[in-house]
């Protein structure tokens, strides 16, 4: 009985870890507001530091998994709880291929919850995606 209990608790722990991991993975991808685009990012400096200007690579694909090439990007952001914006004006400076865009000039000057608002324009379609992150 004791062994069964310990097995059960181990299984519960594994299940918890798997769920937690899948939850984390799920948080790394953001859908645009009408679900047209799927966006993810990676920072060239990890963990993302405060007070240091750095670069990101943004990946954009359609809901069907097709990379989005040559989109025009407008990047805004801020801390909704503090009612202020980003301290810099980040810009997508280069299309790197396969739906990847180089973002330069990003910096965070406070720890806490940040929101990046990404306006993705391609042809006549403009879509907004929100990225939430905690620094």
């Amino acid at each position: 009985m004791k062994k069964f209990k310990s097995l059960l608790s181990q299984l519960a722990a594994i299940l918890f870890l798997v769920l937690a991991a899948s939850d984390l993975a799920a948080q790394e991808v953001w859908e645009s507001i009408s679900g047209f685009y799927i966006v993810s990012y990676s920072s060239k400096v990890t963990p993302i530091p405060i007070n240091q200007i750095h670069q990101w690579v943004l990946h954009i694909e359609t809901a069907d998994g097709e990379p989005v090439s040559d989109a025009k990007l407008d990047i805004q952001g801020g801390m909704p709880l503090h009612d202020h914006g980003l301290p810099t004006n980040p810009v997508a400076t280069e299309y790197l291929g396969e739906g990847n865009y180089l973002i330069e000039g990003i910096r965070f000057h406070m720890m806490g919850d940040w929101e990046i608002t990404l306006e993705i324009s391609q042809g006549n379609i403009t879509e907004t995606a929100l990225i939430h992150l905690r620094i």
Binding site: I53, L86, P87, T88, N89, P90, G105, R107
Partner: peptide, 9 residues
């Protein structure tokens, strides 16, 4: 000149 290039104006 990254800070100046991406300065918030």
């Amino acid at each position: 000149c990254t800070e100046l290039n991406y300065m918030r104006t």
